[in-house]
Amino acid sequence: MATQHSRSAARLMMAPAVFLLLVWMLVPLSLTLIFSFKKFLPLRGDQIESGWDWVTFFPSLDWVGFANYGRFVSSSAFWPAVSTTLILVGGVLIVTVVFGILLAILLNQPMWGQGFVRILVIAPFFVMPTVSALVWKNMFMDPNNGLFSHLWRFFGAEPISFLSEAAMPSIILIVSWQWLPFATLILLTAIQSLDGEQLEAAEMDGAPVLKRFWYIILPHLGRAITIVILIQTIFLLAIFAEIFVTTGGAFGTRTLSYLIFQRVLESQNVGLGSAGGVYAIILANIVAIFLMRIVGKNLDA
């Protein structure tokens, strides 16, 4: 599509950005890799006598081979953390995509106060994760004074302590609430680009409302749904604040990223945490490849 000349000019102009990006990503990545092969326990003071390493700008530490990797996987917390992560990501994806589609269809109907309602729907996206998790924890899910407890009592039921008795569903609810606006917004713009004549043609062809949704609207949204799923997955794999302020990783809510946090900061084992980080990268790639296989074919249609 371009001439030889314009291609090389483009390369020249992109070079600084590419360079910056590489440095930006390569430095932390290679540090993580290096630490994951070392014994690094800062609080034990073992770096003091070991001198300075000019490659990593950190104290020279002992190479320990794959010991950290072995320890991280053999820990009894590893596989539960992986499955918790997958359940959290999967749950939030299902909730946000399903409700995102419903909300997008609703918001696309001509109705009174449309602009205002749209802003309301987008609002949760602007609330910081820590704040929203705290609001949910104290305002809605508090077993004594939360709104849900009042609701439960109103219907004569015994209020439950959501964040301990139903910890995973509660966290999925909180995270979904935050990501629903994103999904809705992308799906809404996709729905708005649907040619109205196609729906009218389907109506004349004898397709009732639900079939029009299934055969016309849903395939039209395919690409947007793919994008929502891929982007959200990237961010959801790293969910942290919501777990930190609500359950602190207890009651079966310890995800891989939370486990890494505990290893690095609570047990002050940087090497072990770095190995976990590498596992997280591998998991993210597996999930991404898996998702691309299922939904990615929508992208090149």
């Binding site: 004549e197 009218e200 389907a202 249609a301």
Partner: peptide, 14 residues
């Protein structure tokens, strides 16, 4: 009745 639209209104994914 059957209608043929100006934009054809074919279903693009079929």
């Amino acid at each position: 009745l059957a209608m043929v639209f100006q934009s054809y209104a074919l279903y693009p994914h079929m």
